[in-house]
Design a protein around this nucleic acid. Sequence first.
DNA 1: CGATGGTATGACAGAATTGTGACAGTAGTA
DNA 2: TACTACTGTCACAATTCTGTCATACCATCG
Lengths: 228, 228
Amino acid sequence: MTANILVVEDEPAIQELLTFNITQCGYRAIEAYDADNAWTHINHALPDLILLDWMLPGSSGVELARRLRADQRTRNIPIIMLTARTDERDKIMGLESGADDYITKPFSPRELMARIRAVLRRRAPQMSDETVAAGGLELSPAMHRINANGTIIDLGPTEFRLLHFFMTHPERVYSRSQLLDQVWGDHVFVEERTVDVHIRRLRQALEPFSLDGLIQTVRGSGYRFSCT
Amino acid sequence: MTANILVVEDEPAIQELLTFNITQCGYRAIEAYDADNAWTHINHALPDLILLDWMLPGSSGVELARRLRADQRTRNIPIIMLTARTDERDKIMGLESGADDYITKPFSPRELMARIRAVLRRRAPQMSDETVAAGGLELSPAMHRINANGTIIDLGPTEFRLLHFFMTHPERVYSRSQLLDQVWGDHVFVEERTVDVHIRRLRQALEPFSLDGLIQTVRGSGYRFSCT
DNA sequence: CGATGGTATGACAGAATTGTGACAGTAGTA
DNA sequence: TACTACTGTCACAATTCTGTCATACCATCG
């Protein structure tokens, strides 16, 4: 859920302000101070969103935006342009150069975050909202519901994701660290044993429906969801 | 998804060009050649968007925009202003008068359509006038009235729209930010927690009719309207 | 059999999320 | 103008969820 946001801004004060707001909202900010610097970061890892000041030393933000749109890899990364309020023409140029949205300085942190959220949401690839059926269970991410032959099972967020992962990857054994990567995210630091506890909670929730054999322990390797 | 666009433009050639582009994109164009004529159309049926030339015979486009913003019914209809490229000041005036966006002549069809789509996307979706029935409730947008098996429930505007959205999209979980987009419109910047408060107000209004289970909290995800 | 390494379980404190009441600002109205 | 209705925001309370630990349990192997 957390997104990497590349902030291209040469003025340190504004850079800091942007970074602060972004991290405050749970996103990760990557700082760049000019176009070249931005490309370095981009080549290293593609960000999910680029926040771009129109005023940059050397080549302008508009030019960077054009280059981003011209490059195959970066073509689809959404861009939000930062423009000064006075020069209305910037807005036009910003939009024509392929920016997805723009925001005028001075901006309120709230507006900034609202725009970031809106753009990310618009671009976000539809989560696999399709209903999954396996092992007598029916799990619907869109409705956030699990149906065990007529009865609704209630799960916490983590157990829900865990079960969703298992149902979409049945019959295969996953180690604890693989499960942490897939279900928790590959950047979190939690004990591997934590997986055991959540497996238990999941089993407990499934037990009333005599579905306890679904999640099997593979000693020394990890766990497996088996539909048979 | 098709929208009605009122095109207020006195020059026949440009009028025709605009209409052509608009219909080409699947929208419906309604033609008006001056302010009075525009009001006639507006009184007949509210358009989804108004494309307004700054240069109009008699009263200017800016004045019309002001009148549109002053009127309760037309206040929330988005306006795109058409201005000549030369006069930068018009742009400012156009925006200050309440236009949502502006576009300079000569314009490219692509830019025109991009702006129209952007503005339409941002507006709060307006509800259809059809009566909706779900979960023991009957909601009639036209009469702004809710019927709970015989009794009439009174709701504020926001709660009304919220309930209407839920009733037309039952069983599915919506995040706070999705609800803000759908019910408030994605151009407004309000805290996500505001949704919670309105959910509470809605629940409170529904409670006397023992309809409290209708709106469910899905921890970590959002809310759901469930008819079952 | 006992030792050993891996797994299950129950408890728990702190973190995270949501519910709730109050409040001030705004807009509309008489 | 005063009055009413409505909104968005906040602070705090209530609730749920999470990660971690200590301990009990179990399979395997010497």
